[in-house]
Write a protein that binds this DNA or RNA. Sequence first.
RNA 1: GCCCCAAUGGCGGAACUGGUAGACGCGGCAGACUCAAAAUCUGUUGCCCGAAAGGGCGUGCUGGUUCGAUUCCGGCUUGGGGCACCA
Length: 856
Amino acid sequence: MSRYNVKETEAKWQTAWEQQGCFTAVDDASRPKYYVLEMFPYPSGRIHMGHVRNYTIGDVIARHKRAKGFNVLHPMGWDAFGLPAENAALEKKVHPAVWTRENIATMRGQLKTMGLSIDWGRELATCDVEYYRHEQKMFLDFLREGLAYRKESWVNWDPVDNTVLANEQVIDGRGWRTGALVEKRKLSQWFLKITAFADELLDALKGLDRWPDRVRIMQENWIGRSTGLRFRFRLSGRDDGLEVFTTRPDTLFGASFAAISPNHPLAQELAAGNPVLAEFIAECSRVGTSEEAIETQEKRGYDTGLRVVHPFDESWALPVYVANFVLMEYGTGAIFGCPAHDQRDLDFANKYRLPVRPVVIPADTDPAAFVVEGEAYTGPGVLRNSRFLDGLDAESAKDEVGRRMEEMGQGERTTVYRLRDWGVSRQRYWGCPIPVIHCPSCGVVPVPESDLPVVLPEDVTFDKPGNPLDHHPTWKHTRCPTCGGVATRETDTFDTFIESSWYFARFCSPRVEDQAFTRSSVDYWLPVDQYIGGIEHAVLHLLYSRFWTRALSQCGYMELPEPFAGLFTQGMVNHETYKDARTGGWLSPADVAKSESGALLRVDDGGPVTVGRVEKMSKSKKNVVDPAAIIGTYGADAARLFMLSDSPPERDLEWTEAGIDGAWRYINRLWRMVTEPPVALPGADETMTGPFSDRGNATRRLIHKTIAGMSDDLEKFRFNKAVARIRELTNALGEIDGSGEGEGWVLREGYETAVRLIGPMMPHLAEELWQRLGGSGLLADQPWPEADPALAVDDEITVAVQVNGKLRATIALPRDAAKDVAEAAALGDSNVVKALDGKPVRKVIVVPNRVINVVV
RNA sequence: GCCCCAAUGGCGGAACUGGUAGACGCGGCAGACUCAAAAUCUGUUGCCCGAAAGGGCGUGCUGGUUCGAUUCCGGCUUGGGGCACCA
């Protein structure tokens, strides 16, 4: 029995594909294109199982589309700027550039062992000046178009390290390295006007019909377009007013307080003369900048003593609080609180003993008996206790209040968005320099295009906290392009989401030097036909890319409404967790083995191990399996097969030893089957002739059903079903010993089909078997098999017969049998007669080719 | 806190648009081959009653719509993703 030599075989075909330039994409307007793109990896050091899953899925699609005749673009690059490289610099004393480039070299080598059909000639890294110089130009164009501007905004500040912290570096309100209480600081920063496209970004979601619904819903909610009323309260005892925004003007007569954000100018003004309020605002600023931190904290407020006058009742005053749950970024930074109909307002009112007055009463409820205590009522209803609104439904009441406010000139109906402009300044080293100069006399001056690129200097040190660009002896010192005087460069760098907002376009012409991409290449290749990545990018990365595409189009770079026509979001790769039963410390799967009794023990000292939950593979829980080790042992095809088997790709997948073993066994089974057939196969160049044994005919039906089914499965990303189907076919082919009439032919057809169908999933094994079956050329260049429609459907169908919805029998009927024929056959079945027990038949429902339900 | 998603045998999952629940795989059990083991192959395997034929129950919980619900609707529970400076 010969053995399948994975190592040799996989290396052999990888070399063959590379030498023949199989996957090199060439612009060719005469052919239909297909652009497959997986989200490019951050070069963290080594590839992980999430990458293996992502790139396996993408490669199956790319190879399938190639076989279907498309001109496929399938590139790879590196999202190479970012925080981890700077952390490595601090922790391991290695320069971010060195660390990043070494990681890229390692990961490129690892990816190449996966046998992906990638055009490596288009590889790019975003930390290379050849890449980021173009986004500096784009930024200057955005500036010119009014899409970029400066404003003050808040950052997390570590007062010990004197450093700006990312949200993930703030743990329970403290800096991750120093443990110091984090403060909020105001800095002048660059913003991109994504809100200018809010309506477009929202409305265009409808057209993204090959995106998952949940991603579209998440983006819709993120943009958060809502219509409401902006109006002005009169402040008693003051000349100015307080402008608030509400989406519930109907509840105005249920108001019991007004609240402003701690960052509201009025709060700042009052704090100047009020140390207690100043302290309260300072406390609020100690919570981080993230919305999560703000929304989950206990709702607290400070009564300013100010009162606002109810717009429809001069004698009605409401207290004004500074409240920690009011966001300055949304609406006007001030609200009125109606506790009965808003949960946050109710929690607040209960804490500060403010009145709770229901004004929207659900239909069929006695208004006198309707009380709101712990839970706010946010459903529909009829207005009560609301003077001129009484009796109206909530929607009409909103209109009525809006109309009257507009009449009085005290407010206006308006649309607001939850979406905020995109802050792109980062006080970090390892990123693209922002191409502006600060001049003491001219202010902020853009770097002239002729002076681009602004190159990130690599001769920096990390011995002091803060941004190394600030400490660099010469880099930031320059001359003002306008007046020629002494000036300094901006030392902030761009948010790394910028690099990932246009890399898909750069892949279209990655080597062009004087522009970001050629117009003809993006006109041909874009949009990306199928984009694949994790659901964690559902909002930010995808929304920024959609914005960037529009901004580039506005600046004349291209004419493209949407960057990604199709999107697929894959699930995570999980693994069981293990702990040392004595110390409670996490153990890696490699440190744990099953004993003869079946218990899990430590490999090194035989100590007891407790098994924890199945969780996302993470370094902190040590439940990681290294893909390189798996590929080294079982080969890329086994790893790829396991990634596609069992779990549907959008769901989480649990990595198990048993699963990879199963994939490995299947590969060897297929190898043996094709290389050691039970009878000599007819030659590859002979023409197939019948007749065939009954078993042969049945198998041929299955072969063609498998082609049809698998083609459909691949189009719909049902890779787990595709794997099940190919296994079913393999099982059936294994039943044939070749003794029946024409069975040699059936085996040849079956083996060839199976090999071609597994091509996208297990390309190395498929290529090797294709060669051994005498196939011509590379399998990678072969067209996808076509199903014979006459063989792909059954003539006879098993139909279920139910009595009152319960299954009582199954009967065999010809395909598409007439209703009366089906009904007669069903009623004649002995089990059905028995179940009917002589009762009169009231109705018979016949669903052709599926079910017959007899109702008695 | 807010937004989004998921839940089916011992396990991963299948079931097309509301029409035979459990395809395919893993694991288990029994057998073949072997001195033995591994590998491989064959049979069997949702749970309960039954010798069998067959019957009852069963898709996280709970209520509804329907001739018929894993699938649609209402209310929960548990787990996961995102929340604007992780990528």
